[in-house]
Design a protein around this nucleic acid. Structure first.
Length: 412
DNA sequence: TGTCCACAGGAAATACGGGGGT
DNA sequence: ACCCCCGTATTTCCTGTGGACA
């Protein structure tokens, strides 16, 4: 056989077993707005988030009567579709308003990373084209004035979609005071603010004087159930994957696992994506076993990402504890761990912290789930925390290697 | 019943580091 | 270049604790 034929045959065989046909439909980041909306439309067309969309329509219906709806608060855990549903809805609403010659403008202020009041206001000003991006050097008042100036003689409806409102740490009060109290008085715009939050009680500790101005309607987004997730996943599968390489029951399994553990659509799609990648890498179909492996790898990657982005001190503490725990079957105590930690610090030339600070590191590792800690009293022999490591062996090995590499040490 | 172990963990003091103003 | 401000990290100091043991 000629070499050209061989190559062609080989490539055709690989192509036949390709699993991911269109990568971008597995990652929303890679889709542009229009494509995103097209995917969303398909999802909403099969009645996913039907109730929520009905409630949204009800809330915004007064627009068509030239009436002024109150503010709105969308509550629910991450990955329950608060943001996408709202964006999709706003897009539709804008089209509708255009048709009916109703003036309407909306802004999406995304606070997905925590930021102080100043940053949030500055970001808003940027979106409105009212100011440049400042690091500092301008007071909150000036910033507010710029926003007011920009909106001073606008007409019609102005919908301000503020995503993850509880990420405004420090001075949420003045942020809200400006938006709900001051701004409506200085512009003829009819302002409707839509908040999202994954904490049901985000309004609890805001200034009562602001709160009294903040009339909100609430819509609750439940976690997705297995039926919804199946619909969402099958649309992704249709668009992105070679369905011949998907074994029976895989879709159901991913939907079931996801609805049981979190009900988060983004994580469900992530599990699907990971499974596809693994299957492709190993040259197999996506089977139930592959899904299991994917689940494990996602978990491992989560731990690795967490420790990589953690401060050096925390990395050192984790390394010392994992290393110590693999030697002894007994639970560890702070004293032992602290000694191990100190000697590790000496080895990697890291300044070691006091036991008090180290003790806080241990609590932090407990919160992140790397280790388990419980307080045990041994009477005369003191009161101490018992520290255990419950990670699968391959994960803790991997973590040790990662930490060593962070300290520029060869894991070998 | 009181003692005392070996810490836990709160509060206040202090060090550090990045950014702006001058 | 120098100082100041402010938020965060760390240290210092401290009080509290459940129960075995005498």
């Amino acid at each position: 056989m000629k070499i050209e034929d061989k190559i062609e045959k080989q490539m055709r065989r690989l192509l036949k077993n390709t699993i991911i046909l269109n990568r971008k439909f597995l990652d929303d980041e890679q889709l542009d707005r229009r494509e995103q909306f097209r995917v969303l439309k398909e999802i909403f067309d099969v009645d996913v988030r039907d109730r929520e969309i009905k409630e949204l329509s009800g809330h915004f219906a007064p627009l068509l009567r030239n009436d002024h709806p109150i503010h709105l608060s969308l509550l629910g855990k991450t990955g329950t579709g608060k943001t996408v549903t709202m964006l999709y809805f706003l897009n539709m609403l804008q089209a509708l308003c255009g048709k009916k010659k109703i003036l309407m403008e909306y802004i999406h202020l995304d606070l997905s990373t925590p930021k102080p009041c100043f940053r949030a206001l500055n970001d808003l000003a940027c979106l409105l084209d009212a100011a440049k991006r400042y690091k500092k050097g301008i007071s909150l008042d000036e910033l507010m004035a710029k926003i007011e100036e920009r909106l001073r003689d606008q007409q019609g409806y102005f919908i301000l979609f503020i995503d993850e409102i509880d990420h405004v740490r420090r001075d949420l009060d003045s942020f809200l005071k400006f938006l709900v109290k001051r701004l409506p008085q200085t512009t003829p715009l009819k302002i409707v603010i839509v908040f999202t939050s994954n904490r049901l009680n985000w309004q609890e500790n805001i200034d009562p004087r602001v709160k009294s101005f903040l009339k909100v309607n609430e819509i609750l987004f439940d976690p997705y159930n297995a039926v919804d997730l199946r619909k969402i996943l099958s649309i992704r599968i249709k668009k992105a994957l070679n369905r011949k390489m998907l074994r029976r029951g895989v879709l159901e399994k991913i939907a079931a696992i996801s609805s049981r553990t979190h009900g988060d659509a983004r994580k469900a799609v992530e599990l699907l994506t990971k499974s596809a990648h693994i299957a492709e890498r190993d040259g197999t179909a996506i089977t139930l076993v592959v899904v299991e492996v994917a689940l494990h790898e996602i978990e491992r990657d989560k731990y690795v990402a967490m420790i990589k982005s953690a401060p050096k001190q925390l990395q050192a503490a984790l390394y010392a504890i994992i290393a110590l725990s693999s030697h002894s079957a007994r639970p560890l105590h702070i004293g032992d761990c602290n000694r191990g930690y100190r000697s590790f610090c000496a080895k990697v030339k890291l300044r070691s912290l006091t036991q008090r600070a180290f003790s806080d590191l241990v609590s932090e590792l407990d919160i992140y789930g790397f280790i388990q800690v419980r307080i045990v009293s041994q009477g005369r022999y003191g009161r101490r925390r018992e520290i255990t490591v419950n990670l699968p062996a391959d994960i803790s090995d991997k973590l040790k290697k990662v930490v060593l590499m962070e300290f520029d040490l060869d894991p070998g």
